[in-house]
């Protein structure tokens, strides 16, 4: 298993290299540059800025320098947030985004998982239809609607939670963003678990468990849920990578200093190094979580073997 993990991580290096290379050159193909503003700068100022940030060098040279710095863990200076390096920006925001994302993920698993199991056990009952309706709602209503509504209701009308802002990892400031992030995930997890549980409950070995008089608790949790968790786990890999790297919409509406907003701001401002920084982080997360999913699969299902 360990050898497999190491091999997979080594195998990820060329993948990351391709992603970084594509992102680097695609970013430069986009028109405009980091120092274009509504008021055009003096040509000499522009030239000095470009020189200071090595943008006057040939592209391949910039690319080589970037790769070299990256290998040393240096993501370079931000072109737009002067005086900050990309490393500092991401280092400040990433823990916050990850905290919110992890809470949302946990909430989604607990609530979505429970709802899905109940719906499957009571298939075609009112409870089941209610869960499906809630799940459909959760998937169809976008977070830029949910976030302001939650903020309005709980922050402004009821006044029981702050409408936005961030004063450190205090539950009051986390609750609404976490719910907003979790809602669509709850819906997806509930649907996945429901479907997988229905299949598991109809399987031959669950029939065996029932034929041997095992109590419902054992039949459902031990003999159905473990197998039914597999499709959810494969969904969770990419989903976790997306959740933990922050959400532009949620962070903007609730005013949270995470890294989600850098994706859009960086791209709009042509902040080349910031965009590259976010790309590297997301790529690394995707690689790591997919590996985690595969290892978890092997841990759950003894028929899966890597070696």
């Amino acid at each position: 298993m360990l050898r497999y993990a190491v091999r997979r991580l080594l195998g990820a290096i060329p993948t990351l290299f391709v992603i970084i290379t594509l992102a680097f050159f695609l970013m430069r193909v986009a028109p405009g540059g980091p120092f274009d503003q509504e008021r055009t700068l003096e040509p000499t100022v522009m030239a000095n800025l470009n020189k200071a940030f090595h943008l006057d060098r040939p592209l391949y040279e910039q690319y080589a320098v970037y790769l070299g710095n990256l290998l040393r863990g240096d993501l370079g200076p931000s072109f737009v947030y002067r005086d900050f390096s990309v490393g500092e920006l991401l280092g400040a925001g990433l823990p916050i985004s990850m905290l919110l994302g992890a809470c949302a993920l946990l909430l989604a698993l607990l609530v979505g998982g429970t709802l899905g199991i109940i719906a499957a056990l009571k298939q075609n009952s009112t409870v089941d239809y209610l869960v499906i309706a809630v799940a459909t709602f959760g998937i169809t209503v976008p977070n830029f609607v949910v976030a302001p509504v939650l903020s309005l209701v709980f922050g402004v009308w009821l006044g029981i939670l702050p409408a936005g802002g961030w004063e450190g990892a205090h539950p009051a400031y986390m609750l609404l963003p976490v719910i907003t992030l979790a809602l669509p995930q709850i819906a997806i997890v509930a649907r996945l678990i429901r479907g997988a549980m229905l299949e598991a409950l109809r399987s031959d070995h669950v029939r065996t468990a029932r034929a041997y008089g095992l109590p419902a608790r054992l039949v459902v949790i031990v003999h159905s849920l473990r197998g039914a968790a597999l499709p959810v786990i494969s969904y969770l890999g990419p989903a976790a990578a997306a959740l933990l790297t922050g959400s532009v919409v949620v962070e903007t509406i609730f005013g949270i200093p995470g890294i989600g907003r850098y994706f859009v701001q960086g791209a709009l401002n042509r902040d080349y190094t910031l965009v590259m920084g976010t790309v590297v982080i997301v790529a690394v997360f995707v690689v790591l979580f997919n590996l985690a999913v595969d290892l978890l699969y092997a841990a759950i299902d003894p028929r899966v073997r890597y070696d």
């Binding site: 031959d204 034929a211 041997y212 008089g213 109590p215 003999h223 197998g227 299902d301 003894p302 028929r303």
Partner: peptide, 24 residues
């Protein structure tokens, strides 16, 4: 019923591969 199933009356099935839980 669970006090009788598996204790007083036991069953075996056609397909032993799928009738046993593959995960345990």
């Amino acid at each position: 019923l669970n006090r009788i199933r598996g204790a007083k009356i036991a069953m075996i099935f056609q397909e032993p591969m799928t009738s046993l839980d593959p995960l345990y």
